[in-house]
């Protein structure tokens, strides 16, 4: 059913994305681009020590990619780098592995419907790949833009 993909929470986050915009000060940023469809987003994160204090994004994309970025930035706050990376791994499992469960994924569990739409997995993971790039690029210095 198409409603399993476009659940209320996904539609809500795609229409009113949370954490949309720029950070006043950020530790790292990265740009994500899906050359197949043209979806593009810029993610900015603020790290304090090893902990993600804040995350915001700008960009344009389909409902799945915007909702994913919105829910990701909400989920990230307060997570350590290692926790964030682990979360991506679990999230990716949820989208690609029928046997994966959504335990502990909280709101991110709404993306389990994407599994039935292999062409859309890239949309749901764009923000997370961008996060990975941002974490790899990051340093402790806070840059203000």
């Amino acid at each position: 059913m198409i409603d399993d993909l476009y659940q209320e929470i996904i539609l809500d986050h795609s229409k009113k994305p949370r954490n949309f915009g720029h950070l006043d000060a950020s530790s790292a940023h990265a740009e994500g681009f899906n050359p197949l469809c043209g979806d593009r987003l810029t993610l900015e994160i603020l790290l304090e020590g090893d902990v993600v204090k804040d995350a915001r994004f700008v960009g344009a994309g389909c409902a799945i990619s915007v909702a994913s970025a919105s829910l990701m930035t909400e989920t990230l706050k307060g997570k350590t780098r290692a926790e964030a990376e682990k979360l991506f791994e679990r999230f990716h499992q949820l989208l690609t592995n029928d046997a994966a469960n959504a335990d502990d994924l909280g709101k991110l569990a709404v993306f389990s419907g994407v599994r039935e739409y292999p062409a859309r997995v890239k949309c749901a993971t764009l923000a997370w790949h961008t996060l990975k790039a941002a974490l790899e690029n990051s340093d402790e210095e806070v840059s203000t833009e």
């Binding site: 993909l5 979806d39 344009a60």
Partner: peptide
Amino acid sequence: HPHDVGTILDRQGIAVRTG
């Protein structure tokens, strides 16, 4: 977004291109 249009149309048997 066109991608969402394309996915929902596909579920109704309609093949279009998006992108």
